[in-house]
Design a binder for these strands. Structure first.
Lengths: 131, 131
DNA sequence: TATATATGACTACAGATGTAGTCTTGTGTC
DNA sequence: GACACAAGACTACATCTGTAGTCATATATA
């Protein structure tokens, strides 16, 4: 066992990915506008570099349309979230899911509605495991 | 809002931190042995560099005893876990705790005992919030 | 047509991180 | 005392990441 040395999506690149998923095949200009209006005061040059590197990392692909490139994610958002979750779980909680869950339950705010939804999910999971 | 640019503990450094917490004021040799027996086939030189950098980052401190340095964490383990959890939550789930919790509940294995413990915690949390 | 701006390709630099090497010093063993 | 090894300080290199700049090209506007 050792650290997974596969090149990761950096924190800043995650913000770009989130915009790519949200906007559906955006142009670089659209990504830049969205990030800037989300409070990331990054220069367009910086954001363009991040986009280019994500393409190079094979995380997004682009297709030319009307002289502009439109970008899209190569993998499903869920896939990337799962992988990031696994990595985090392993790094901080040595893979112990219930420790992670307890940690967040005990250290963050949850509305009653959220608590009930979680309870329902846990009920469902327990029922499925009984079969 | 923008990315928190504070220097982070890297993935590899987290593994060192975990050993420092577990072994209670270990020497570098003890850290090296422990990591190697945990499956990290890192050279002693690599591990020593990581230790030195963590000291430089003010994450651990050292004290000389009998000619050897003994290392200890400057912050509580819980503090670092909380900070890492917050950062992950913001990066992947835009701060939405219940989304994170649902994600892990629905995508990982949990024993019935773990499910019950979680439900108890959620019950407690709901009760506390009613006051 | 001239000008302004956006876009993409290519480049650059600083700092962080992973992976060590070299050298000096101290300790333990023979 | 000689030798081996561990430890710590200091150094080095490659790669990744954040933050751009430069240049050429295309498009829009006056």
């Amino acid at each position: 066992m050792s650290l997974d040395k596969k090149i990761q999506i950096s924190d800043a690149e995650w913000e770009v990915m989130k915009v790519v998923w949200e906007l559906k095949r955006p142009t670089s200009g659209e990504i830049i506008s969205c990030l800037n209006s989300n409070g990331f005061d990054w220069s367009p040059k910086t954001i363009r570099t991040m986009i280019t590197r994500l393409v190079k990392k094979n995380e997004i692909k682009c297709k030319e349309e009307d002289g502009l490139l439109r970008y899209s994610s190569i993998k499903e958002k869920d896939r990337l979230i799962k992988d990031a979750g696994k990595r985090f779980l392993k790094k901080i909680f040595d893979g112990g899911t219930s420790n992670l869950l307890l940690h967040f339950v005990n250290n963050t705010d949850l509305s009653n509605a959220e608590i009930e939804e979680l309870q329902k999910s846990l009920d469902q999971k327990r029922d499925e495991q009984k079969k």
